[in-house]
Design a binder for these strands. Sequence first.
DNA 1: ATGAAAGCGCTAACAT
DNA 2: ATGTTAGCGCTTTCAT
Lengths: 332, 332
Amino acid sequence: MATIHDVASACGVSISTVSRAISRPDLVNAATRERVLAAVAELDYQPSTAARSLMSGRSMTLALLVPDITNPFFFDLVRGTQAQAAAAGYSQILIDTNESVELEHQHIATAAKGADGLVLGASRLGDDALREAARSVPLTAVNRSTPGVTSVVIDTPSGMIQAVHHLASLGHRDVAYLSGPRSSWSNGRRWRAVQLGARQAGLSVRRLGPFPPTRAAGAAAADAAVHAGVTAVMAFNDLIALGVLQRLFARGVAVPDDMSVVGCDDTFGADFCHPPLTTITASIEQVGRLATDMLLEQLRSVAPPPRVHTVPAVLTIRGSTGPVPARRRPRH
Amino acid sequence: MATIHDVASACGVSISTVSRAISRPDLVNAATRERVLAAVAELDYQPSTAARSLMSGRSMTLALLVPDITNPFFFDLVRGTQAQAAAAGYSQILIDTNESVELEHQHIATAAKGADGLVLGASRLGDDALREAARSVPLTAVNRSTPGVTSVVIDTPSGMIQAVHHLASLGHRDVAYLSGPRSSWSNGRRWRAVQLGARQAGLSVRRLGPFPPTRAAGAAAADAAVHAGVTAVMAFNDLIALGVLQRLFARGVAVPDDMSVVGCDDTFGADFCHPPLTTITASIEQVGRLATDMLLEQLRSVAPPPRVHTVPAVLTIRGSTGPVPARRRPRH
DNA sequence: ATGAAAGCGCTAACAT
DNA sequence: ATGTTAGCGCTTTCAT
């Protein structure tokens, strides 16, 4: 690998001239510049990022931490952050914290030294830990908000309230919320939204779970819902809802004829599963873009005060919700 | 941010002692070591990765390049490479080359300086360019093989041959292959496999396309297939197949009653779309793990000669394939 | 316009 | 067992 010295000696100038010819071309004589640039091309010289980082203190790298790359929600997020990072000349490193608070903690510490800033997807950290982290490194949190921390949150709750009303208007009186992970901030918000909507619409909700936010867990969730005797379920996310659909089908419970199912996030698959999922839609990729933008902003010399940006979410009605069954089916 | 000097002066030793206390504890007096480690904890000292990289010449970072992060095939790959990289203490940076040969070229060059090695997912590079790249930086290619380049390839072709026989056994005589991108090496292999299978099974295949490997393109592909009057299609990948399913449904063509559909890769969604997709299954995550392993191996002092590892793939029959229609439906 | 030299934070000889 | 020193490759004063 060619170094700046190779280039310098190749065209008989000093290393500072080479450096300047590259980073501030206007400061060097046109003729010399040509010569240097030619040598650079000739030797295929690439300035060492390590050396640059050492000098500048910046790595031109951003890190994205997610609890589980397996979850399509995060695919969409990755897409958005990656695109925006790339556009700004940053690389993005991807870290899976495996739904673990400790791992997240640890990775924040280590990632912080490798990256110039972090995007925390659905952080499982507590308020104090999150604020603390935000103090030690530029970061923006996605779907995890607390005062003093820059974040972008999706207004899923208002979508869920709409969903409850939708269910009510179909005649449902008994619905279950299939809870996500306890450590998920979104889960708390969503459950509160469901409760609020239920109060407004005058129907009864109960919370089942918590369940891991996976398709596999949807089977258990479906069984719990059938056992509870509700006519509709609202799942913490689409993954659980997908699992529910599958399990209900296996048990011979028809959707939406015997049971209505509402997902959340409208991630990949929600529109082509069977039946297609009524769910809460937001542009997650857009959220990723925004989060990266807000992070990049903090990296500029004058960092803005922490802000929280809210992205709208709406109810998308598809085939998995329908009128309440005329007569309740036997509970298997 | 604390430096090694801060730690050193904090406990009245030289920086080398600090360095040693951290990287080779056995070389320093137990008592001093304690003191140093205490100071490290106290000051929350984190050795600078940039400085370390500069010294060692290694960044402890791997890069994964994919043509399109949007594609679920690559989600699975990301999972695998990420897991294995993390296990080996490496970070992984993710790069989207956007289906562009030029972008891939360029990113290989730039990524090469930031990362210690690359995993190229479904590289769109030509043979020469790929070999050239492999000469300049440690890399392993996934589903893109050429002599002299370490790679892991999925034995999708044998799965596709099985699929053709499956179709033949259902009575199909006319099938179409819905071609993927021209620059995709896999596409060529898959098409050849389909032709071979067709010859063996004595049925006729034609190639339609090429189509971009996206759900959206599946609509065009479906129309082309209907127009061609075939009774079964085999798509380059599940994404196209999913799009076909959707379009066929919209046009009132029943699957599998009027048309059988075979996908490829068994990516997220293939098992819960409607009807579930008959497809070619391989553990893509496993492929990612393997690719990273093989890359890591090249990074060790004595790099092994280029090898190509083949991962098996099998036909998974689901609901999207069935007997050939008794009488052909009118072609819309 | 160009060169010399200092130094970013660290590790690895080489002294002591 | 510990300290001193010389770089790793680069940018950036400061001279010239």
